Amino acid sequence: MAEPIRAGRPAHGATRRRTLLRTALAIGAGGALAACRSGDDGEDASPFTGERRTGDHVLAVKVDNVAAARPQTGLQHADIVYTEEVEAGLSRILAVFASDVPATVGPVRSARESDIELLRQFDHPALAFSGVQGKLLPTLEAAPLRLLPPGELSDGYERDPARRAPHNLYLKARRAERAADDASAPRDIGFRFGAAPKGGRSTAGETVSYPAARFDFTWSQERRRWLVTMDGTPARSRGDGRLAPATVVIQHVTVRQSRFHDRSGSNTPFTETVGSGDALVLRDGKAYEAHWSRPSASGGTTFTEAESGRRLPFARGQVWIALVKKG
C-alpha cells in the first residue's frame, strides 16, 4: 500500500519556544534520569539497555516490515524495538535509538496514532516518519514530539534506487539526531536490568502471531541471544547480520479500532499501551510469566513477576517488545 510522503508543518515559533522550555525544565529537574541506576550492581547505566553507554537524545523511527522492506537497515543498533499491528493485520516496527545511533535506518514509513501514546513515556523524543494521514496530522503536531518527516528534514532522507517505492526511503539517523538537539535525553521508563530471577521455564523459542505476520524468537546458547525470524525468514539488518536481542517481551495489550482507515478502507488499529495486563519475558533461554503496568501515558511501564510481584529484571542489551492483542 503506497503512502505519499506528507511533510509535517513546521511548528510555530511559540510552540518551539514551549518545547525548548519544557525540555530545559525536564533536564534541570530530573537530569539524573538520563543515567538511572538500572543494574543490580548499582552502577549507572542506560535506562533502555542496562549497558554503560546512554546517548544524548531519544530518536524513534517508524520502520517498514513487509517482505519488500527486508532486510532493514540499522535495527541492530536500536536500544528498543517495538513491533505492532497495523492495517490488514500486517506488522510495523518502532525502533528507539539513543546509545548507538547508526548512519542509516530504514526503510522509513508512516506514523500511527498509537505512536503518540507509546512515545509519551520517553518525555519529548524525536520521531522520524515518512508521512501521516491528513486527519491525524494535527493530533501528531500537538503531541510532545520533535517531528522529523522529510519536509522538516529534507537533507536527512535518501532513496535507495535498488528498491521500489514506498519501501526505499532511508533516514540519515545521525543527521536527524543532530537536528533534534531539543529532544529529550534517555530517562527511566520502567525497565530494570540484572541477574536472571529464579524460576522461569526453559524454552527453545516462542512465536508471536499477528493476523498477517509472524515473529519467531529462538534461543541461541552460543550467542546468548534470541534470534529473530520474520514470517519464516531469518531476520537480518543490512551490514550487521542476524537480529538478536538479549531480552524479548511479549506484552498482551488491548488493540481496538481507531478513527482512521488506509486508502483501501482497512481500519488502522490502535494499540493501547497505558493500562495493565499479562506479559511473557524471554531472557537467558527461559520464559517468565509477568505482569505489566503503566498507569499513565507520561509514566513508564513496569514488569513484575506474575507470582511474587517483584520487579522482573531484563538481560542487559537490546530489548524487543512485541505488542500483541489480548487473547
Rank of each mutant, 00 (worst) to 15 (best):
A111M: 11
S99T: 15
V86N: 02
A103H: 13
T104L: 11
G106Y: 07
D100F: 08
I116P: 12
E85A: 07
A95I: 02
R92I: 03
F97W: 03
Y82P: 04
E85Y: 04
H77R: 13
I116S: 10
H77L: 00
T83F: 03
V105G: 15
R112L: 05
V81Q: 02
E85V: 14
V86M: 04
T83H: 07
V105C: 08
I116A: 10
V101H: 07
S114T: 14
E85L: 12
G106V: 09
R92E: 08
V96K: 01
P102Y: 06
V96E: 01
V96S: 00
A98R: 04
R92M: 05
V105Q: 11
A78Y: 14
V101R: 11
P107E: 10
R112Y: 04
V81G: 03
E84G: 05
R109A: 01
V81T: 03
D79Y: 12
H77T: 05
I116Y: 12
R112V: 07
Y82I: 00
H77S: 11
S110E: 13
D79P: 08
T83A: 09
S99P: 12
S114E: 11
L90P: 07
I80C: 07
S99K: 10
I93E: 10
V101D: 15
A78K: 04
E85T: 14
E85P: 06
V101L: 09
R92D: 07
A88S: 10
S114W: 07
P102T: 02
E85M: 11
Y82H: 10
I93G: 08
A111Q: 06
L94H: 14
G89S: 02
A103G: 13
I80Q: 04
A88H: 13
T104A: 11
E113H: 15
F97C: 06
V86F: 01
T83S: 12
S114C: 06
V105A: 15
A88G: 06
V81P: 03
H77M: 03
A111E: 10
I80D: 05
I80H: 06
G106Q: 10
P102R: 02
V86C: 04
H77G: 02
I80P: 03
I116L: 04
E113F: 13
V108P: 13
D115K: 00
D115Y: 13
P107N: 05
D79W: 10
F97V: 14
V108M: 08
L90I: 10
V86G: 06
V105W: 11
V105H: 12
A88C: 03
D100K: 11
D115R: 01
Y82F: 13
E113Y: 15
L94V: 14
V81E: 04
V96I: 09
S114V: 01
H77A: 07
R112S: 13
P107L: 01
R92G: 07
R92V: 09
G89R: 00
D115Q: 06
S114P: 11
R112P: 10
G89T: 00
D100W: 08
V101T: 12
L94M: 12
G106F: 09
E84M: 12
G89H: 01
D79Q: 09
S91E: 08
D100I: 02
S91Q: 07
E84C: 05
S114R: 05
A78I: 06
